[in-house]
Design a protein around this nucleic acid. Structure first.
Length: 727
DNA sequence: AAGTAGGCGGGT
DNA sequence: CCCGCCTACTTA
């Protein structure tokens, strides 16, 4: 090296791995890079995509320094997006590189989409005409360009005919830019006729959008009150302002109906984003979002990490839905992160739900969020008649789980040629198997929860960790043959019972472990909408926004399920789920009925569902939490361990995991850099466990510590709540 | 995260 | 005696 040569320019690059800060890379002379550039860099033996971050390159041993290999021809990650990544990394105590990784999950999108080879008509005429040539010229008459195979197909000729014409100069090659995956939505495609209340609510939202500043608005309105139509107007306003829009939906793979509604309003479907998207489509969406061709995305929680260039509105539909929580690697709730995204981007966020989460309701009441409520008036005709069935008074037949009242109503429904839905939120045949002779209960060897029998598959399955084993004939404890007995119902068992009562009915079971995956499920849902089933027996996935126009009866097989599991959110969750499920019977225009089988008809959840008085229920729940000294929100608990190195923290985590095998989700998320509570000058690492109550977590940690023999003081507990308090 | 290097068990 | 699996360690 010449002694007078300049030292190379060095920049920080976030690489997609859990380092706690960017790595330094050198920049070749003349290479155009700046914050936000997506680059290819060497990392150990491989090449990875990284993002040039802010600040200087830091100091690193020059011997270790390696060069950026390539700057991708791709829009830079915006300043907004980089702040968003930093914020989430800080808040969730995740390494920023892992957060950045969520934004780099479409590797082929960093190179520009290839242009399409096509042909177009010239002025030249062919030497002689044939019938095939005539058809080709007629088809291509419009003067637009065609792909070779596309034109051949449309004209009904072999592509050699096209080649012949091209050889004579009748067509010439042209390159076309890649086609947009969706047309631009038209905000005035089908302006709806809104009812006065919807009108004023829509006006409130469009004002927020025109203001173009950060705000959060909660739309609260029962099923059928027109929430979607109302926030569509906010979307129209954002589109007219030239801004992009993100609609978050829980589990979008099953929300076909939503996309159609969007199309009816805007003339085209939004771009979709979810984990089942084929890789080629993923890349196109990513690229076209970054370049601004895609104006509206409807997506699952990961769509928050799409590189929007002009985002101006985020709508979070069904904001209470637990599917918004990501619980691996980076723990976050997409609903809260959407609020943070809006705060950083300076634009409005809309949360919508018929059954808002307690925390959103509290945020609305305290004035932190605006709240607009849609009255149920317009929806009333669409709401089912709801009744609780007291199972102590109308018990099922011996060995069964369906009460005579529900069976009676089902018979009537089928006689009218309408459909019935039995809802039970439990997959498989039976949640517990025991030996009648010795009392042995089948337990998961890895996490000690009961094994659920799946009779159709002939297996015992742990719903907690996925462990499975074949169902044995003999008891493993006492060896007795044929004395194993199934306890309690799952959907398979309810189906068996239904077949016994209605042998001629077409009965279908829907659950997430259905053979054939999401595709099959979508087909089945379609078939049900068309009336190709009489009785549908399903788990919670039937609760998600499907329309079954002929479904006039919903029976909740076990409305108490989920109320007694010690989760402080049990009542809230049950209320939300049951509201959603009974709502499935409301959209028919016909008289419809919802029946809740319960052993506690006086429970506040049952009373709230039957009376429709959600407000009283919410007030009660909120007060209950206050009485218990809990914030009305909060979910995560961080366990802080003290350790000198990440390795040592990992070793703490391993010991804690061993001591509490049920807590498989203990995870090291540190080190936390906060200067407080440094223990003995060592680093603090945070571990996350599930839990909603500080006391529960503390108890949990104490028992783990006793069992794991960790040094006193090496573990502290901190409960993390509500990100809004950081704004 | 993903790849490499070092430690041991066990079967051919 | 070498392969497979587990753990520790590195990546700029």
């Amino acid at each position: 090296m010449k002694p007078d040569s300049q030292p190379p320019r060095v920049v920080p690059v976030l690489v997609p791995m859990p380092a706690d800060r960017p790595y330094s890379y050198s920049v070749a002379a003349g290479m155009q890079v700046g914050p936000g550039s997506i680059v290819r860099v060497p990392l150990g033996p491989r090449q990875v995509a990284g993002i040039v971050w802010d600040g200087d390159g830091g100091s690193v041993d020059p011997k270790k320094l390696r060069p950026i290999e390539q700057v991708f021809d791709c829009p830079r990650v915006t300043d907004e997006m980089r702040r968003f990544v930093d914020w989430i990394a800080d808040y969730t105590l995740s390494p920023p590189g892992l957060v950045a990784r969520m934004l780099l999950r479409a590797p082929a999108a960093f190179d520009p989409e290839p242009w399409i080879e096509a042909i177009e008509r010239t002025d030249a005429a062919p030497d002689r005409m044939t019938a095939a040539r005539g058809r080709v010229l007629e088809t291509a008459d419009s003067g637009l360009a065609w792909t070779r195979s596309g034109l051949a197909h449309a004209a009904g000729v072999s592509s050699t005919v096209i080649d012949g014409l091209k050889a004579q100069g009748v067509f010439r090659d042209v390159m076309l830019p890649p086609r947009p995956i969706v047309a631009a939505p038209d905000p005035s495609y089908a302006t709806p006729q809104l009812m006065p209340d919807q009108e004023s609510t829509a006006a409130t939202l469009t004002e927020k959008v025109s203001a173009g500043t950060f705000s959060v608005t909660l739309i609260d309105g029962v099923t059928g009150s027109g929430k979607t139509e109302v926030y569509f107007e906010a979307i129209a306003a954002a589109l007219m302002k030239g801004r992009q829009v993100l609609i978050l939906l829980p589990e979008i793979a099953l929300t076909h109906a939503f996309l159609e509604r969007f199309q009816d309003r805007f003339g085209t479907k939004p771009a979709e984003w979810h984990s089942d998207l084929p890789p080629r489509m993923r890349e196109k969406v990513w690229r076209q979002v970054a370049e601004g061709q895609v104006r509206v995305v409807a997506g699952a929680r990961s769509a928050l990490f799409l590189p929007f260039c002009e985002l101006g509105l985020v709508v979070v539909d069904e904001e209470h839905d637990p599917a918004y929580k990501q619980e691996d690697r980076v723990y976050y709730n997409a609903r809260d992160m959407a609020v943070v995204r809006g705060h950083i981007g300076g634009f409005p966020v809309v949360l919508a739900s018929a059954t808002p989460s307690l925390e959103s309701r509290v945020n609305a009441l305290s004035g932190r969020y605006a709240r607009v409520a849609l009255p149920a008036r317009f929806a009333e005709a669409a709401l089912p008649d709801l009744k609780a069935i007291d199972m102590r008074r109308s018990p099922p037949a011996r060995g069964g789980f369906l009460s005579p009242i529900l069976l009676d109503e089902t018979r009537r429904t089928l006689e009218r040629g309408e459909q019935a839905l039995f809802f039970l939120n439990r997959r498989g045949y039976a949640p517990l198997t025991l030996c009648r002779v010795c009392g042995h209960r089948f337990q998961c060897p890895d996490c000690s929860s009961w094994l659920v029998e799946h009779r159709f598959r002939g297996q015992l399955v742990c719903h907690h960790c996925g462990h499975n084993e074949p169902r044995p004939e003999a008891c493993p404890e006492c060896g007795t043959l044929d004395h194993l007995v199934a306890c309690g119902p799952g959907v398979e068992r309810i189906a068996e019972e239904a077949v016994g009562h209605f042998p001629d009915a077409r009965i279908i079971v829907l659950s997430s472990d259905m053979l054939g995956g999401v595709r099959r499920l979508r087909l089945e849902l379609e078939a049900i909408s068309k009336g190709e089933a009489d009785i549908v027996i399903g788990t919670q996935l039937v609760a998600k926004g499907h329309n079954f126009p002929n479904m006039t009866l919903v029976g909740i097989v076990d409305a108490d399920l989920g109320l007694a599991n010690g989760d402080p959110r049990a009542a809230e969750r049950t209320f939300q789920l049951l509201s959603q499920v009974t709502g499935r019977a409301g959209r028919t225009g016909k008289k419809s009925l919802g029946l809740l089988q319960t052993y506690q008809p006086e429970h506040p959840v049952m009373k709230a569902i039957v009376s429709g008085d959600a407000e009283a229920f919410y007030e009660r729940e909120t007060e209950e939490r206050q009485r218990a000294g809990l914030p009305p929100f909060g979910r995560l608990a961080g366990i802080i361990v003290s350790a000198a190195t990440r390795q040592e923290a990992e070793s703490h985590a391993r010991a804690l995991r061993r001591a509490a095998p049920a807590a498989t989700d203990i995870q090291v998320l540190g080190p936390a850099e906060a200067p407080l509570a440094l223990i003995g000058g060592r680093h603090r690492f945070r571990l996350l466990v599930h839990g909603e109550r500080r006391t529960d977590i503390q108890k949990f940690v104490r028992s783990m510590l006793a069992a794991a023999d960790r040094p006193r003081g090496s573990v502290r507990v901190q409960v993390d709540i509500d990100p809004q308090s950081f704004l």
